[in-house]
Design a protein around this nucleic acid. Structure first.
Lengths: 111, 111
DNA sequence: TGGCTTATCAACCAAACGGTTTATCAACCG
DNA sequence: CGGTTGATAAACCGTTTGGTTGATAAGCCA
C-alpha cells in the first residue's frame, strides 16, 4: 500500500485477520490496548503497530486516559467501503435468466 | 497478507488503486489483458501480476481465447465483503440522540 | 515456414509489512 | 522517592509486494 489515497489504506488495514478481530472487539465497546491484545499470541508492541495502521486508516481513535489508552472504533471509513462495494451490487444480484443471459450473450459477440 | 483466509486476500487485492480501476473497467464488461492495461503507465507484465492477485482472490476469471485472454469479473467475493462490512452498519448509522447517547455514557462509566 | 502479436514466466530490486528485542516515557502506588 | 505498569518508539530481520527487464509460449497470418 504505497499510495496515499484513503480507501486503499482502509482496505489494506482490513486485509489482516488480527486487525479485523480488533475491530470486532471494538464494535462491542471501547477497550484498552492490553485488553485488545490479550487474545493474540504476539507482543504488545506488535498490537501497538496494528493500532497505528488502524488509526492511520481512520478506523480507530486512541485517547490517553491516565496510564492507559482507550481505543474507540471509528466506523466512517467502513461506511465508505460499503459505498464502494455497493457499486458492484447489481453484478452479484444479477439474475442469469432470460434478460441477464441475453445481455451476456450480446456483449460476448460485440467485437 | 501472509494469511490464507480468503477475505484477507480479497481486502488485500482491493487495497491497490490499479486493481480497483481494473475491476471498475471489468464491471462494464469483459476485456482482454491489453485493453485492461492500456490506461496505466506500467508494463504488461505488471498488469499480468495484478491480474494474478485478483484471480487468486477470486475476483476475476481468465479464459484463453485464441491468442488472447478474456478477463471477466467475478463478483462473489465482493458480496462477501459487503456482508462483512454490514456487520458494522449499525455503528455508523447509530443516532447520537437520547438513546444512543445514553448507551454511550453508560459504557464509559462501566469499569 | 517464419514472423508478428498477446500474454505469461523468471529473475531481480527497492520499499513496505509483520513480527521481534531493546529502550524510553508517563502515570500510578507503596 | 523508587518501583511497577501500560504503552509506544526505534532498530532490526525475513518475507511480501509492485515494479522492472529479458526470455518464452501460443496462436494468427503472409
Amino acid at each position: 500500500m504505497t499510495t496515499a489515497d484513503p480507501i486503499s489504506g482502509v482496505f489494506a488495514a482490513l486485509a489482516d485477520p488480527t486487525r479485523r478481530a480488533i475491530l470486532a472487539r471494538l464494535a462491542e465497546g471501547e477497550a484498552t490496548v492490553a485488553q485488545l491484545g490479550a487474545p493474540f499470541p504476539i507482543s504488545a508492541q506488535a498490537i501497538s503497530k496494528h493500532l497505528n495502521v488502524l488509526e492511520r486508516a481512520g478506523l480507530i481513535v486512541r485517547t490517553r486516559e491516565a496510564q492507559w489508552r482507550r481505543v474507540r472504533i471509528e466506523p466512517a471509513p467502513l461506511r465508505d467501503v460499503a459505498g464502494w462495494v455497493a457499486q458492484y451490487r447489481r453484478l452479484w444480484e444479477e439474475r442469469y435468466d432470460a434478460l441477464g443471459g441475453y445481455l451476456e450473450r450480446l456483449q460476448k459477440e460485440e467485437p
